[in-house]
Design a binder for these strands. Structure first.
Lengths: 181, 181
DNA sequence: ACATACATGTAAATAGTTACATGATTTC
DNA sequence: GAAATCATGTAACTATTTACATGTATGT
């Protein structure tokens, strides 16, 4: 999936401006997809050129004029074909785990800071997902499932972090060569 | 973390050729970091230029000559500074969840295929991680932790996939507009 | 005969992020 | 008076993937 597909996806749920598409990502989908203005605006221009979306300009009082985009029939069909032809691929990249891999090279206090930061990060993510799932009405069952999926992962990892914290610090300490602090 | 840092990390565990660095990633770290030959070879050339690694050429019988790289003292110090200055960032990108978000637009059989593929994927990942953690001696405690982390996440998600499978398909079906199949 | 493993490397293409540019309005 | 929100867009930079190029040896 690239920014083009992400935009078509959002627009299949209802019309929106580039700014609103970005906000939708930040608020709801940031845990499994991301993009930026620098990608969204060129993507919307290209999609318009291809006839997959159309827009009207909406002048507002006390707000800048905005372009409200709507997905066209051609865009909808294109999006459907994309969905049907896409593999359910995944990628997880973690600097946290990379740093932990070399924990034996780092001061104990630093490793503890890393573990605490990660625990906080997992807690925050979990709270965000739980808030969305409880507050938002009108979620599609699929959307609700993506939130459950994130919640399940975060809960399991948070539990691991809490259970292993102390023993892990000890184990890393024991593995450190005697000359290092 | 970029390919330069990944190479320094592997070399901090022992000398290796570009080819061996790639293999190490495929076998052991692919679940949280990835890279390719097109990044590794230029990175090793640059690191040599900067004096952060050195290499000797090793001629082999019945095998092509290889360049065996070793991290230098300067490289080690540089890597330590990188570790100390890096935030424990994470990113998860999932086309599977994106597709599930729009499951109400897809045929039921297709959604079921997606769910089955994802379940298989989680099972395979889990087995790989469990095999590594049980077979590999001489893992650093940090490395062992990265495996436990992956195992915890995969187990929790696999459980969710199994528990929710049937009900989810029903819910998606109910959300489909009557005209669609 | 064909595929895979070993081994190094380049070049083009892809895609994305970050910073910049502009400017009104609202909140602290 | 400063920062955040609303709103669109461009350009330079960064990084990585993919395909290509080359060649031997081993396994099926």
């Amino acid at each position: 999936m690239n920014t083009h597909h992400l935009c078509l996806g959002i627009l299949s749920l209802g019309e929106a401006s580039g700014y609103e598409i970005k906000k939708a990502f930040e608020e709801t989908f940031s845990h499994f997809q991301a993009t930026s203005y620098g990608s969204i605006y060129p993507a919307l221009a290209k999609l318009t050129e291809q006839g997959l979306v159309s827009f009207r300009e909406e002048t507002q009082e006390k707000r800048p004029t905005k372009k409200v985009f709507t997905i066209t029939q051609a865009g909808y069909e294109h999006f459907y074909q994309t969905l049907m032809n896409s593999e359910p691929a995944e990628q997880y990249r973690s600097d946290f785990l990379f740093l932990m891999m070399f924990a034996h090279l780092l001061p104990k206090t630093h490793v503890e800071t890393l573990l605490n930061k990660q625990t906080e990060h997992l807690k925050t993510e979990l709270e965000i997902l739980q808030r969305i799932i409880s507050e938002c009405q009108s979620l599609t069952p699929g959307m609700r499932f993506t939130l459950e999926y994130g919640i399940a992962a975060n809960q399991a990892l948070l539990l691991l972090m809490q259970q292993r914290h102390s023993a892990l610090l000890e184990e890393i300490d024991a593995a450190r060569s005697p000359l290092e602090s």
